Amino acid sequence: MFYWLLKYVVLGPVLKLLFRPDVRGLPHLPRSGPVILACNHLSFSDSIFTPLVVGRRVTFVAKAEYFTGKGIKGWLMRQFFSGTGTIPVDRSGGRAAQAALNTLLRVLREGGVAGIYPEGTRSPDGRLYRGKTGVARLVLESGALVVPVALLNTDEIQPTGTLIPKVKRVRMRFGEPLDFSRYAQAKGDRFVERAITDEIMFELMAMSGREYVDVYASKLKTSVESPGSRDQSRTPPVVVEGAEKG
């Protein structure tokens, strides 16, 4: 009930009025059945705009810290994430990634829509990074279709470290569903998991027009933060010529 009020009565109309979403390809999203929305990750606001434009309830997972903040800001974040169906996951332990996948798998088995960022973290520089195979494990365990979602300019609207977003038209693209049922008997095969993940990332690269770097974004962030580390941000990108620019 609170999700409905927040999305359709309180917050949704205001955000749509301010940011005037330019969305293409939304009819590709099936109206029923389990679906995985695989999104590139540019900004904190990605988890706001994606559920905003989708007619079905979308469930993301987020670090538990978003639900434990203090003061007015903490209360507002807690209410927003709870209201939009985001589920807290403790990321402090070694089993955190599996806990997140289990949560999304439960949503899919109930016929819902699960949102996931295959890169595992926000892009540090706007480029698209190597996908982690958790999305492929979700596909193989659930049999769900995958709809790639390219967020084109959320890093301009709310750059990393920025609290107040710029009022600017948000642009999003939904791709045709990807069906990986041909791999139904290959659960646990790490080569198949990598193949599925790479196919999804290729679609996101083509749709977004972003440069692709074949390293994990989390590894790049770690190397940049480590004193004396080599700058890996110069890794040669792979560019799709003539890709969707919106």
Rank of each mutant, 00 (worst) to 15 (best):
108 L>W: 03
23 V>S: 07
88 P>R: 00
88 P>T: 03
46 D>M: 08
6 L>W: 10
70 K>R: 15
42 L>D: 13
72 I>L: 12
107 V>M: 02
104 L>M: 04
27 P>G: 07
103 T>Q: 01
77 M>D: 14
58 V>T: 11
103 T>M: 03
51 P>T: 06
92 S>K: 05
105 L>D: 12
95 R>P: 10
41 H>V: 13
79 Q>T: 15
11 L>Q: 07
38 A>K: 05
29 L>Y: 00
40 N>G: 05
100 A>S: 14
15 L>S: 05
7 K>I: 04
26 L>N: 02
94 G>K: 06
54 V>G: 00
20 R>M: 08
79 Q>F: 05
39 C>N: 12
49 F>S: 07
20 R>I: 15
20 R>L: 08
96 A>R: 00
10 V>T: 07
107 V>N: 08
34 P>A: 12
80 F>T: 13
96 A>M: 03
96 A>Q: 05
13 P>S: 09
47 S>A: 15
79 Q>C: 12
76 L>D: 15
81 F>S: 13
107 V>R: 01
11 L>F: 05
90 D>S: 06
66 Y>F: 11
12 G>T: 07
73 K>A: 15
47 S>D: 11
92 S>A: 11
58 V>Q: 01
4 W>G: 13
44 F>E: 15
37 L>G: 04
35 V>Q: 03
52 L>N: 02
84 T>S: 11
94 G>H: 01
101 L>N: 08
31 R>P: 11
47 S>L: 04
38 A>M: 06
5 L>Y: 08
56 R>E: 07
39 C>G: 04
104 L>I: 11
60 F>W: 05
110 E>L: 07
26 L>M: 10
33 G>W: 00
108 L>A: 04
98 Q>N: 14
77 M>V: 14
26 L>W: 00
4 W>P: 03
30 P>F: 07
57 R>P: 10
56 R>N: 02
34 P>I: 09
76 L>S: 10
17 L>I: 14
24 R>L: 10
41 H>C: 11
89 V>S: 02
54 V>T: 10
47 S>Q: 09
39 C>F: 06
74 G>I: 08
81 F>V: 10
100 A>D: 11
94 G>C: 06
60 F>C: 08
97 A>M: 10
21 P>D: 09
75 W>N: 09
19 F>R: 01
102 N>S: 14
67 F>D: 12
15 L>R: 02
93 G>K: 08
80 F>K: 05
13 P>M: 06
42 L>S: 13
37 L>K: 03
91 R>P: 15
74 G>K: 04
87 I>M: 09
109 R>K: 14
66 Y>C: 13
82 S>N: 15
76 L>P: 05
43 S>N: 05
44 F>R: 09
27 P>Y: 00
49 F>G: 12
56 R>G: 07
30 P>R: 06
18 L>W: 01
30 P>E: 09
56 R>Y: 01
9 V>H: 01
71 G>L: 07
35 V>L: 04
61 V>T: 12
37 L>F: 02
39 C>W: 02
13 P>V: 10
57 R>C: 13
62 A>M: 11
44 F>G: 13
109 R>D: 15
45 S>K: 03
63 K>D: 11
80 F>G: 13
71 G>E: 07
61 V>E: 01
83 G>R: 08
72 I>T: 12
66 Y>P: 12
98 Q>M: 14
46 D>R: 03
90 D>Y: 02
89 V>I: 13
47 S>I: 14
65 E>L: 06
60 F>P: 12
79 Q>D: 12
25 G>T: 08
47 S>T: 15
31 R>D: 14
83 G>K: 05
